[in-house]
């Protein structure tokens, strides 16, 4: 029982990070209709900014992290306005290719500026907590508790934002029908830039939370990005709650696979389970069915 609970905690921790990444990817996809393959790399690039402020400028940790997230927002919005909007009229495919190009640019830039060395990044909070239960003792790191809190706060915040604010409503309207939204007087361009900004900031937040474990290097976000995409697919690619559920579920499944079945096969087995889910329900757990007029 203790072992089960302990693994569940670890799975939820991993899942929360995946969910954050999935949430950012889905948010951008839902509003602008493009899967951002540069997502993780933009988060990676942003955390190098935090690293530079922390270690070269000597700014305190909280300030470095704040600057990093603000930078990510600007980076996301600028990428949308300056690059993606230019090819928007061509096709979704063109935008997709563009994000692949951005991936290479950010990786190359990071290599040029900061070289390929691994760099360490501190936990935002340190220490572990012991919780004694009937059957034994559970150990939880404070950083993991922080990850839960941050992930939950962001998810709740986004939910409230989309449901109860005007901009949130505008984003939902744009996602549903771009042309109709335009006719209703919604500034669609601003909404696109905003979604990219918020989406990429989420990438930066996940990078900040993951960095103490992954270290900072140009490819640090790649495994998390792959899992984020997988989680998003599992949840249904066009649903924000789906991204959260899919991400958390993937984290938990992976943890249990590793603990109870095989550490070596856990990734393969987790993906197999997802494959089965998608075979049964192709639109994902919470995704909407694609309906097209014939």
């Amino acid at each position: 029982m203790t072992m089960f609970l302990q693994q569940l905690i670890l799975g939820l921790r991993g899942g929360s990070l995946i969910a954050l990444v999935a949430l950012g990817i889905v948010m951008i996809f839902k509003t602008t209709g493009v899967v951002n393959f540069a997502y993780g790399y933009m988060g990676m690039f942003s955390i190098y900014i935090a690293y530079t402020f922390l270690n070269t400028v000597g700014a305190p940790l909280w300030l470095s992290v704040t600057i990093c997230i603000a930078f990510a927002f600007a980076l996301g919005a600028a990428a949308e306005r300056g690059l993606l909007r230019q090819v928007r009229h061509l096709s979704k495919g063109a935008m997709l290719i563009l994000t692949l190009g951005m991936l290479m640019i950010f990786e190359g830039l990071a290599l040029q500026i900061w070289k390929q060395d691994y760099r360490s990044f501190p936990n935002l909070v340190s220490g572990v907590r012991m919780i004694t239960i009937d059957t034994g003792r559970l150990v939880i790191r404070n950083q993991d508790i922080l990850i839960f809190i941050v992930a939950a706060a962001i998810m709740a915040g986004l939910f409230i934002y989309f449901k109860y604010t005007k901009t949130g409503l505008a984003i939902r309207a744009t996602a549903q029908n771009e042309n109709a939204a335009k006719l209703m007087g919604i500034k669609v361009g601003v909404i696109f830039a905003l979604s990219w900004g918020v989406g990429v900031s989420l990438g930066a937040v996940s990078a900040v939370l993951a960095a103490p474990r992954t270290f900072i290097h140009p490819n640090m976000m790649l495994p998390l990005q792959i899992r984020g995409l997988t989680g998003a697919v599992l949840g249904g690619f066009d649903s924000l709650p789906g991204a959260v559920v899919g991400g958390i579920l993937l984290g938990v499944i992976e943890q249990f696979m590793g603990a109870y079945i095989s550490e070596e096969l856990k990734m393969a087995l987790s993906l197999l389970i997802i494959l089965v889910v998608l075979l049964v329900k192709p639109s994902g757990l919470m995704g909407s069915k694609a309906i097209e007029r014939v």
Binding site: Q6, Q7, L10, G14, V139, R141, A210, R213, T214, P223, Q255, G258, A259, E263, E264, K266, M267
Partner: peptide, 16 residues
């Protein structure tokens, strides 16, 4: 005997 994936970054289970 605890195997870890070559790309693994979290070792909580192993250490516990």
């Amino acid at each position: 005997k605890l195997p870890v994936d070559p790309s693994k970054v979290t070792f909580d289970s192993e250490i516990l």
